[in-house]
Amino acid sequence: MIPLLTYLNPFSKVPKIIKNRMEIQDYIRSRIDDERRSFDPNNVRHFLDLYLQQEGKSNSKISENHLFLTIADLYLAGTDTTSVTLQWTMLYMIKYPDVQKKCRDQILEVIGEDRDPVGKDKDNLPYVMATIQEVQRIATIAPLAVPHLAVEDIEIDGMTIPKNAIIFPSLMSVHRDPTLWEEPDVFRPERFLQNDKFVKKKGFSAFSMGPRICLGKQLAESELLLIFVSILQRFDLSKAEENDELPIDGIMNGITQQPKNFQMCFLPRQ
Rank of each mutant, 00 (worst) to 15 (best):
D33G: 04
F47Y: 14
D244A: 02
Y127G: 06
R176V: 02
E35N: 13
V14Y: 14
L4D: 12
I132H: 00
N243R: 03
E182V: 10
N20G: 09
H175W: 00
C103E: 01
V229I: 07
T160W: 07
D114F: 08
A240E: 09
R212V: 03
V84M: 07
N261D: 13
S230G: 00
N42L: 10
D236G: 04
K120E: 10
N243H: 02
L219W: 03
N20S: 10
L108D: 12
S63E: 05
L226H: 06
S238I: 11
F187I: 03
G216I: 01
L5H: 07
E64N: 13
D49H: 14
I2M: 00
S12T: 08
I154V: 15
A72H: 12
L225G: 09
K101F: 02
E182K: 11
L226V: 03
S230P: 04
S173M: 13
V174G: 10
T140M: 05
V44T: 12
I2C: 01
K16D: 15
R36G: 09
D105H: 10
V118P: 05
K95W: 00
L224P: 01
K122N: 11
I141H: 01
R191W: 01
V110Q: 09
K61I: 09
R188I: 08
C265Q: 07
E221N: 10
V174M: 09
K102E: 09
C214N: 03
M172Q: 13
C265S: 10
A165D: 04
E221Y: 07
D114I: 04
Q258G: 14
Q136H: 12
E190L: 03
I111L: 03
E134K: 02
L171M: 13
A77D: 08
I231W: 01
D80R: 06
G250S: 05
I28W: 06
N9Y: 03
L267T: 11
P3Y: 06
V151L: 14
W181D: 01
G78C: 01
F204I: 06
K57P: 08
T179Y: 07
A165P: 02
N261Q: 13
S205T: 12
M1P: 12
L224R: 06
M172D: 13
K16E: 15
F11Q: 07
E242V: 00
R29H: 09
R191I: 01
L125C: 04
Q270R: 15
V44H: 11
N43M: 12
K197W: 02
K95M: 00
A72G: 09
I156K: 04
Q257H: 14
Q270C: 15
E183S: 14
H46M: 11
S238L: 12
C103P: 07
L91H: 06
D33A: 10
S222K: 10
M252K: 12
L52P: 05
S173N: 15
I17K: 11
P126G: 04
S38D: 15
L108H: 09
N195D: 10
D249K: 06
L52M: 05
A142S: 13
L8Q: 09
S170L: 14
D49G: 14
T179M: 09
D177G: 03
E155A: 13
V199M: 02
I141E: 02
G78S: 05
T160V: 15
F39K: 03
T131D: 00
P178A: 04
M129A: 11
L225C: 10
S63M: 08
V135L: 05
